[in-house]
Amino acid sequence: MKRTTACAIGIGTYLAGLAVGYQVILRNRCLEWGSTKEEVARAMPGDDLLTDPDIVATRSITINAAPERIWPWLVQMGPGRGGAYTYDWIENLLGLDMHSADTILPQFQNLSIGDTFALGDTGPRMRVAVHEPEQALVFASEDGHWVWAFGLYPSDEGTRLVSRNRIALPNKAVPTRVFNRLIMEPGSWVMERKMLLGFKQRAEREQKAPVVAVSEAPAPVGG
Rank of each mutant, 00 (worst) to 15 (best):
A136D: 08
L169N: 08
F139Q: 05
H131Y: 13
V128I: 15
R127M: 13
P154C: 12
F150Q: 08
W146F: 10
L169W: 08
V174N: 08
P170Q: 05
A149I: 02
R127A: 09
L169S: 04
S163M: 11
T159S: 11
F139R: 03
A173V: 09
V178I: 15
V174Q: 10
G158Q: 08
P154M: 07
S155C: 15
P154G: 12
L137V: 06
E185G: 09
P170C: 05
P175G: 10
S141W: 01
M184D: 10
L182E: 05
E157L: 13
P133M: 05
A129L: 07
R164T: 09
K172I: 10
S155Q: 14
G158T: 06
P133T: 06
A168F: 07
A129D: 05
M184G: 07
A136Y: 03
L182G: 01
R160V: 12
V162W: 06
P170E: 07
L137T: 04
G151L: 10
W146T: 05
E157K: 14
P175Q: 08
S163E: 15
E134S: 11
I167H: 02
I183F: 14
S155M: 12
V130H: 00
V178G: 01
V128P: 01
V178K: 04
E185D: 14
E185C: 06
R177A: 02
E134L: 06
H131W: 09
T176D: 13
S141C: 03
E132P: 05
D156H: 12
A136W: 02
I183W: 14
G151M: 09
R181E: 14
P133K: 04
L152T: 03
R127E: 15
G144I: 00
L161Q: 02
S163F: 12
A140L: 06
A173T: 14
H145A: 12
E142T: 10
P175I: 04
V138R: 00
L161T: 03
H145K: 15
L161C: 07
Q135I: 11
R160W: 10
N165W: 08
V162F: 06
M126F: 03
L137R: 00
Q135W: 06
W146V: 00
N165V: 12
W148T: 09
